Computed example of a mutant assay.
Amino acid sequence: MTEAHVNIYDRLEQLGIELPNASAPAAAYVMSAQSGNTVYLSGHIAKRDGKVWAGKLGASLDTEEGKAAARAIAIDLIATLHNHLGDLNRVTRIVKLMSLVNSTSEFTEQHLVTNGASELVAEVFGERGKHARSAFGVAQIPLGACVEIEMIAEVK
């Protein structure tokens, strides 16, 4: 079976990932919007045990904890994409991730935190998951979350 024909749900099962229910918006926006073959996913904040994963990298959280939070967000993003599309096998490319990391001014490992999401997306989607990316350190994220990530995907 070629890379393009690997069933995404089989891959999720192999990775031991069960998609959660897609999140609802917390304010005046939608979780996903499509224009042509491009799907834009709103920023998702880190959650742990169903609650906001709060904290600041470089103060109350270290890089590995941030990376785990980013991985959890990637799973939530994939769940939202599934909810929008109805079939993740329609994804032809994850185009871009944009990551905001709640961090101190001294913390400089935002790129390593964001690897938690990037690596998971590549594991799930294979070649289709290789994406462009930005990772920023910010002073605060809504609800005190440690990380927020948005995604852009191309679909058929």
Rank of each mutant, 00 (worst) to 15 (best):
N83A: 15
E65V: 08
D49I: 01
E148K: 09
S103H: 02
K67T: 00
K47H: 11
H131M: 14
G126I: 10
E3L: 09
D76N: 14
L88Y: 06
A72R: 12
Y9P: 01
M31E: 11
V101L: 06
V52E: 01
A33C: 08
L15M: 06
A74G: 07
R11F: 01
R93L: 14
S35N: 15
L81A: 11
R133K: 13
V6R: 14
A59G: 00
N7D: 15
L88F: 05
P142Y: 11
L143M: 10
M1Y: 12
P142V: 02
V138W: 10
A54H: 05
G86D: 07
F136P: 01
V39F: 07
A22P: 12
V52P: 08
E119K: 00
V101W: 07
M31H: 03
R133W: 15
A68R: 13
R133P: 02
I75D: 13
R90Y: 00
G55N: 07
Y9G: 04
G50F: 07
G66R: 04
I17N: 09
I152P: 03
S35T: 15
E150G: 13
K130H: 02
V52C: 05
I17P: 08
D87R: 13
E65K: 15
E18P: 00
A59E: 15
Y9F: 10
D87E: 04
S35H: 13
K96M: 13
A122W: 00
L12E: 08
R71L: 03
L12S: 06
A117N: 08
V113G: 10
L15D: 05
D49E: 13
D10T: 07
S118T: 12
R11T: 14
V6W: 06
R128H: 09
R93D: 11
T114E: 14
A139M: 11
V138Y: 12
Y29C: 03
V113E: 04
A69F: 06
T114C: 03
I141Y: 13
T80P: 01
I94V: 15
E13C: 04
A68Y: 00
A27V: 00
N21W: 03
A26Q: 10
E109K: 06
E127L: 14
D10V: 03
I75F: 00
E65D: 07
Q34C: 04
E3R: 01
R133E: 09
D10Y: 02
G58K: 09
G144A: 02
I75S: 08
N21A: 15
K56P: 00
I73P: 04
V155L: 07
T80W: 02
H111D: 15
